[in-house]
Amino acid sequence: MEHYLIIIVSAAFINNFVLSRFLGLCPFIGVSKRLDSALGMGMAVIFVLTFASVITYMIHRFLLLPYHLEFLKTISFILVIATLVQFVEMVIHKTAPTLYESLGIYLPLITTNCAVLGAALLNINENYNLLESALNGFGAGVGFTVALILMASIREKLELARVPRSFKGAPITFIIAGILSLIFLCFKGIIAE
């Protein structure tokens, strides 16, 4: 039990996907202007990351390994993720139209979010089993959402601050991300590796 908890906490905070592994930076900079869209993006990413971790694990375990096709890993994973995102989009559209409305354009964008492919590849590298992969994916999604929400709240306040003109937008966002990342470094001591 404790082992599983450690996987989630480690993926979400200690090795936060955005702030210490640098995965999913494009949406992190692009969608962190407003809090409500950050929340929508975060939810969509948690959803897709968990599903993608499970499915890529199964493909690797039951399709690629038995037939010695590991070299097809990258190709098959990216295609599966792209298909999965389309599929999730259709399912949400049918079953929960209000959620679909609020997620809007963020769903298709997730395909190119490197956090999804990154999590899938990390699961394979770490030799996680099915449950561990799912939890790692979920934790990674939670970590992404936490970072995105923190950033969006700061940037909403930043609108009122006097930032040098050349540093407006992306530059100041990166410097703030650096300070956030410094704070997240403190989580490193929680679990002895």
């Binding site: 702030l19 210490s20 540093f167 992306a170 990166f174 410097i175 991300a177 650096g178 300070i179």
Partner: peptide, 25 residues
């Protein structure tokens, strides 16, 4: 050491982008 760790990366790219904006102007 912090420059090798993740925060250093964010701060470096932030400053580089900012200064390249100044040069562009």
């Amino acid at each position: 050491i912090v420059m090798i760790l993740p925060p250093g990366a964010f701060i470096t790219i932030g400053l580089i982008l900012g200064f390249s904006n100044i040069l562009k102007k």
